[in-house]
Write a protein that binds this DNA or RNA. Structure first.
Lengths: 248, 248
DNA sequence: AGAGAACTACTCAGTCTGAGAAGGACCCAG
DNA sequence: CTGGGTCCTTCTCAGACTGAGTAGTTCTCT
């Protein structure tokens, strides 16, 4: 039997029904706090509970495309938002994670600078940016786990890649970049050392030779402006003070 | 409508058929070379081509369980092999990656010390350990991509976790551990510095206070024996010499 | 005008790293 | 049995990096 004959005689319906969905953990920084995008479920199961935005993957739709589409539907952000970073987080497929049927969900994390308030999606679900430390203790399905994994991924990516530049505007100051790290880790950093470190990593940022129009809101000189460099990985990495407790 | 009513009226068949499979990138070290487990496909499509071991996920089977089962079927390794490490790599779901139907594959990487020769699986596929630099340029489906991603994951894990101890026996010498790194990166390391580094990372290895029975095959003193420590992450990391070219 | 804030730059001591070398212990060949 | 070669382990040393502190300067706010 050759490939063509085989395909002609092949019956996809012979396999048990499994649904594939995408869920998106979208992070942004608003008012100095890390926010995650949540939606309130409008239909069973878990009607009324907060959950991650997401939905079924179209039959001929690529996985990242599905994630971008779902995110766009929930937030109203143009699908091709220039500064949006989307990457696969992992796949969650415990047999009992959804009571309806076997659902395997491919989770994505998205990072973006301060996004507009989400518009309620076409399916009339309420959507909102929620500060990470005010998020509901319980989310629908296994979404609490996914959000926790997403935060871990964000931290890891911030240390080893120029991801932080995705959270700030096109042009930014070193202090704005530092604020991203301080926000995600929730602790202050030594301004001088951070400055030295960022400028010493090749390709992380490049100077625009301009400065801000005004000094900081509470005083201080005008800061130099930078834009993202061309590095894909940070060498050496920007390691954060590692709390020993989290290690073992 | 409450959850129970909803579930009763829910028809899983309404959704388009998508198959979920697992593919496993299994690594081991044999004769000083990194080997990957491949199988020769016994049926269309791509009959006769080399591919990764894998298969369909059972309707009520967890994803890691399915991966372990498929690996066991291909290699004859006991499912609960003590020193086997299995972790999710990523999910590959391009709509056209399998000509039969929409197949979303969750890839896993497995690491283990020198495993026995694989037994041909129940489906009579030929299975073999293939040295990484002798592997076929083309594998079935998108499996070449998955193998490349698996290698990258292996390197990353070796640097940041005690994964290397999974490639050696229960008790091992520092030199054996060094050989793992040299094999995966394909370049020699400074023995003295490696030694110092390994012993300085808390929880990486712990001494057994014994030595090998004999010196090395080509001379040299008996080496001290160690076993894996209890650390889950290496702090500080065991960073390999990063070739600058690979960075950008 | 003065106080306070904060961007940037500098210093300094402690630590880590890569490279080299030395001291033995051991295997193998002759 | 002896000598050459191997290689595990420890040591040394210079250079790089890090965390912490300080200082100059410029700016906003009151």
């Amino acid at each position: 039997m050759n490939d063509a004959d085989f395909l002609a005689s092949y019956d996809p319906r012979a396999y048990p029904p499994v649904a594939v969905t995408v869920d998106i953990v979208a992070f942004t920084i608003r008012q100095g706090a890390l926010n995650v995008l949540l939606v309130r479920r409008a239909c069973p199961p878990s009607e009324g509970m907060w959950a991650l935005p997401g939905g079924f993957v179209g039959q001929w739709e690529d996985l990242p495309t599905a994630a971008a589409r779902e995110l766009a539907e929930e937030t109203g952000v143009a699908t091709a938002h220039r500064r949006l970073h989307l990457e696969q987080l992992g796949t969650y497929g415990a047999p009992d994670r959804d009571p309806r049927m076997r659902v395997v969900s491919v989770a994505y994390v998205a990072f973006a600078p301060d996004l507009p308030d989400p518009v309620s999606g076409s399916d009339a679900r309420e959507a909102a940016w929620v500060p990470m430390d005010e998020r509901p203790a319980e989310l629908a399905f296994d979404h609490s786990t996914i959000v926790a994994d997403g935060l871990e991924r964000a931290r890891s990516k911030l240390e080893y890649t120029p991801l932080a530049t995705k959270f700030v505007g096109e042009e930014f100051t070193i202090a704005e970049l530092r604020a991203v790290y301080e926000t995600v880790w929730g602790e202050p950093l030594h301004a001088g050392n951070f400055h030295r470190k960022v400028l010493s990593v090749p390709g992380f940022v490049e100077s625009t030779n301009t400065t801000t129009e005004r000094g900081g809101a509470r005083g201080g000189p005008r800061a130099k402006l930078y834009r993202a460099g061309d590095a894909r990985l940070l060498h050496p990495a920007l390691l954060m003070p590692s709390r020993e407790e989290t290690v073992r």
